[in-house]
Design a binder for these strands. Structure first.
Length: 629
DNA sequence: TAGCGAGGCTTTTTT
DNA sequence: AGCCTCGCTA
């Protein structure tokens, strides 16, 4: 293949960049994914580097898949080896599954997602005698996560944070960490942090991976956090071949630790870095672009790019004020009907700040019989029944996984109630052992008898049976056994309507199929579980859907012909929790910028004063978002 | 002591 | 739609 010529001068400079650090400041719609994929193809094609020595990092699995496909398309079918393209988290998991024993962990660790974290934290709050109204589990997790990402250990927590209940938080932090350790589990933060530790404490590993990955490319650099930055520094310490692409105006993940300073001070961190700006937008009409620029121009924390386009000016951006949340939804959905009537192939998105806003739009779309897809709230791997099945697998392969055990110990109900679970937890705490060990002992204790004991013994024998199959049966076979042995289907049919039970069982079947396929690809059970843990909602987005509903965060990196940005009210967008801080407000503004720049041809913005029926002091009508000005 | 139905409450953003 | 608590029953 002759190398493509459809690159503008700046893009070409970026693609042809040789060795050493480079920062590509790429405005929305300026072709940044294209630059990365072309560059990967170029490095391989010119022989500068073998494919397997390239590491490209993206933010979602979906982005990684797409990048892989595009590189394939550019290079054609001559498969010798593949460049390594994945998310930071998946990359770190791979590293850790191989080398984490060097840090004193076992390689069969479990991964705790947000839901698992919350369960663990609730348990800890209960043990500490704190009510959830004193300290919300999510709040506690958030603080601990912040401290971890800034490398502040529990015993130094109070010295850094002087909030009212920082002592309680520090104590929870200490217990949280020791419980994770004891459960042979890592949370999402740990996946990155342990990778940093590994590379820092074991220079031979750092050199090994650093030498292997000769060229490292990073997408969405503006959303990297501190541990991610450190991983990049460690891996590139010798060769400095770090090529990052990002847009400071699209940095929207501060709440989960992203540090916009990473992109703002790139030249300081990597002296001699080449800086390339991509300012020509190929996506949107000029009118849309001008609206976007006007919003984000109010920000201070910028490097300053001037986006421009050769596209036509297009329609003006329309703002609609709804009489109520419901009528806002009707207005939007009626416009959608009209648009699809005229041009059935149009790809349309309804974007909002918070998930719960989807409800009205979903209901109205259903009423009008317009097919749609929602991203969010209930992703496949987040479904109750799927998580139950995965918890069974986890406890079989990592018996120390307390959160998994607690999840399924009485699901389906098998007469192991709160009192019995409490007793197990007390035993485990006293002996400092995992719950499964306490369970095994208690269920085999000949001195005990009675109903509760019989229930425990029956459950233990189920666990023993599955454990004996662990090394011979495939995960898919195990899952089938679990469904059968636990009478899971019967539980669903007892608890829910027939339809509901059917659809949940269909999800379980789907999971079995996924396990089967994973096995056929030759993956281990851990690779299967890892993918389930790291899958995100956007990964499974059906790109064929004409109308999609999602949060603005989920929409980052996507584009649509027509965008409806809804719920533009003070307190909602910008969100009430961001109003006190200038930095948070800037992030809300960037979020708004992201939303606007998703649109190719048409943009509608809507709001309504009448969204919240109840406030603290009765009804309070909302004001239009400041972003509308 | 476990199970179950009723009823109230609540929703920032997520790898 | 999911989470919790409460009160009743076996």
């Amino acid at each position: 293949m002759e190398f493509p010529v459809d690159l503008n001068p700046q893009q070409r400079i970026a693609v042809d960049h040789g060795t050493g650090p480079a920062l590509v400041l790429a405005g929305a719609g300026s072709g940044k994914t294209r630059v990365i994929t072309y560059r990967i193809a170029r490095l391989i094609q010119t022989g500068a580097c073998r494919p397997e020595n390239i590491l490209a990092v993206t933010f979602t699995n979906k982005a990684a898949d797409e990048m892989r496909e595009r590189v394939h398309a550019l290079l054609g079918p001559r498969r010798s080896a593949e460049p390594h393209i994945s998310t930071f988290h998946s990359f770190c998991v791979r590293l850790l599954r191989r080398d984490i024993h060097l840090l004193g962990y076992r390689r069969d660790f479990s991964i705790y997602d947000a839901d698992d974290q919350k369960r663990l934290m609730k348990q800890l709050l209960k043990e500490a005698g704190l009510s959830e109204s004193e300290l919300a589990p999510r709040e506690a997790i958030g603080r601990i996560s912040y401290a971890k990402n800034h490398r502040i250990p529990a015993h130094q927590y109070c010295a850094h944070f002087k909030a009212a209940n920082s002592e309680e938080t520090a104590e929870l932090y200490r217990k949280y960490e020791s419980r994770l350790r004891q459960s042979n589990a890592l949370d999402f933060d740990d996946l990155l942090l342990k990778a940093v530790e590994l590379l820092e404490q074991h220079p031979d590993r750092r050199d090994h991976y650093g030498n292997w990955y000769r060229f490292i490319l990073v997408d969405e650099y503006q959303d990297t956090n501190r541990p991610q930055y450190e991983i990049l520094r460690l891996l590139t310490s010798h060769h400095k071949n770090l090529f990052v692409v990002g847009d400071e105006d699209q940095s929207i993940y501060r709440f989960r630790g992203a540090d916009i300073q990473n992109i703002l001070r790139f030249e300081k961190d990597f002296p001699g870095a080449r800086i390339i700006k991509l300012e020509q937008n190929y996506r949107s009409t000029d009118n849309i672009l001008r609206v976007a620029s006007a919003v984000v121009a109010n920000n201070q924390e910028r490097k300053g790019k001037v986006l421009w386009t050769r596209n036509p000016s297009g329609d003006v951006v329309t703002c609609h004020t709804g009489r109520s949340a419901r009528s806002e939804a009707y207005w939007v959905c009626n416009r959608i009907e009209e648009i699809l009537d005229e041009e059935p192939g149009t790809r349309i998105a309804i974007l909002y700040r918070a998930n719960f806003l989807s409800r009205n739009f979903e209901e109205v779309l259903r009423e009008l019989r317009v097919p749609y897809a929602v991203v969010g709230s209930v992703a496949f791997f987040g479904r109750m029944e799927v998580k139950d099945m995965l918890a069974y697998l986890r406890i079989i392969f990592n018996p120390e996984d307390d959160v998994a055990l607690l999840r399924i110990i009485n699901t389906p109900p098998r007469a192991i109630g709160p009192t019995t679970v409490e007793l197990l937890a007390k035993m485990a705490a006293e002996r400092g052992c995992p719950l499964s060990a306490a369970l095994a002992d208690l269920s085999r204790d000949p001195a005990r008898a009675g109903r509760a004991h019989r229930a425990l013994a029956a459950f233990q024998s189920l666990l023993d049976r599955w454990a004996s199959l662990r090394d011979t049966a495939s995960p898919a076979e195990l899952l089938r056994d679990i469904v059968r042995d636990t009478r899971y289907r019967e539980m669903l049919e007892r608890q829910e309507s027939r339809e509901e039970a059917e659809s949940r069982m269909a999800n379980v079947e789907e999971l079995v199929r996924a396990a089967l396929e994973s096995g056929q690809r030759g993956e281990t059970v851990f690779e299967f579980l890892d993918r389930a843990s790291l899958a995100s909602e956007i990964d499974s987005l059906d790109t064929a859907a004409r109308v999609v509903l999602m949060t603005v965060h989920s929409a980052k990196g996507l584009e649509f012909d027509v965008v409806f940005l809804v719920g533009l009210e003070e307190g909602l967008f910008p969100h009430a929790l961001s109003l006190d801080s200038a930095r948070d407000l800037e992030e809300e503004r960037r979020l708004c910028y992201v939303a606007i720049t998703r649109a190719r041809r048409k943009l509608f913005v809507t709001w309504t004063p009448m969204r919240r029926a109840i406030g603290p002091e009765g009804f309070v009508p909302a004001s239009p978002s400041r972003f509308l000005d």
